[in-house]
């Protein structure tokens, strides 16, 4: 019982530390806010003006995909932060303390949600500027935002594990680009998956990034009129499929990350 309450209080202490850091390092905050803003404006105006889709606005279609992609990239803050703590010996200090063994990773992933919430707010505002609108009511749009954040939270657990595994924060950045770029491009984020070559199409159809994007579009009411109904189960049930992935990722990577933390030693 004591153990569980320590997991919460210690996790809270760690989260508080990270929140102080968000306030003290404006550079990170600028990156967190400017990158999403640029993504929405650039993609929205450049692609959005040159691509036409029948029955709807490409910009409106695009915004859901940009939300998903940007939030996934946001997860690298978790990995880079942990790799940095490891390099500086701060993880060693934590590990020598009689604190909960899961608190550092739980506190970190939880507090990094703040980045994602902030960048989502910026993207929503930017989206409204480029002409994106919510058509299904605010309630279902909020569900969409919640699902996107939940998915990003799951991805941050993967990055937490990677951050504790690699020798330096730079490696986290490279690794996240190598994995997240293909994942977000071989999906329905920027183009409807149906137009892709067969192997890519199959990948895209089962890619959880497609599902979360599809779910967001449906919940925002951004599916263009006349779009053919999806033929595969993941895209027919995108909310459920996304939730399955969220549970799966956390169930696998949370224990892995905690285990890695308890074994980690500073690289010298």
């Amino acid at each position: 019982m004591e153990k569980i309450s320590y997991a919460f209080t210690d996790g809270f202490t760690i989260a508080k530390r990270n929140v102080i850091k968000i306030k003290r390092v404006p550079e990170i905050l600028v990156a967190v806010l400017i990158t999403p803003l640029m993504f929405v404006l650039l993609f929205g105006y450049v692609f959005g003006s040159s691509i036409d889709i029948p029955g709807g606005s490409y910009r409106e279609f695009l915004v859901g995909g940009i939300f998903a992609m940007t939030l996934m990239f946001g997860a690298h803050f978790t990995g880079a932060g942990l790799a940095n703590d490891m390099q500086k010996g701060i993880i060693d200090r934590f590990r020598s303390l009689p604190m909960s063994r899961s608190a550092v990773v739980f506190g970190k992933t939880a507090s990094d949600m703040i980045y994602n919430v902030l960048s989502l707010i910026i993207m929503v505002l930017a989206g409204l500027i480029v002409g994106w609108r919510i058509h299904n009511g605010i309630g279902s749009a909020l569900l969409g935002f919640g699902l996107l954040l939940l998915f990003a939270y799951a991805i941050s657990w993967i990055m937490a594990y990677v951050g504790l595994l690699v020798p330096s924060p730079e490696v986290v950045n490279n690794a996240s680009f190598m994995v997240i770029f293909p994942l977000t491009f071989i999906a329905n984020t920027f183009v409807p998956a149906g137009n892709l070559a067969t192997p890519l199409r199959v990948f895209a159809e089962w890619n959880p990034v497609s599902a979360v994007t599809q779910a967001a579009r449906e919940l925002f009411g951004n599916i263009p009129l006349g779009t053919p109904e999806p033929t595969v189960w993941p895209l027919q049930n995108p909310v459920l499929y996304t939730l399955v992935w969220v549970v799966l990722i956390i169930a696998i990577f949370a224990p892995l990350a905690v285990r890695r933390y308890t074994r980690a030693a500073a690289k010298t």
């Binding site: 530390r17 500086k88 010996g89 060693d92 303390l97 009689p98 608190a103």
Partner: peptide, 25 residues
């Protein structure tokens, strides 16, 4: 107390020590 002065440089001296105290419960 390790070789690398494992203090969190973004936290103040007070916040560093207070955090450690909380983690010792």
């Amino acid at each position: 107390s390790g070789q690398y002065a494992a203090v969190d440089e973004h936290l103040t001296g007070f916040e560093n020590l207070d955090m450690i105290g909380r983690l010792y419960h």
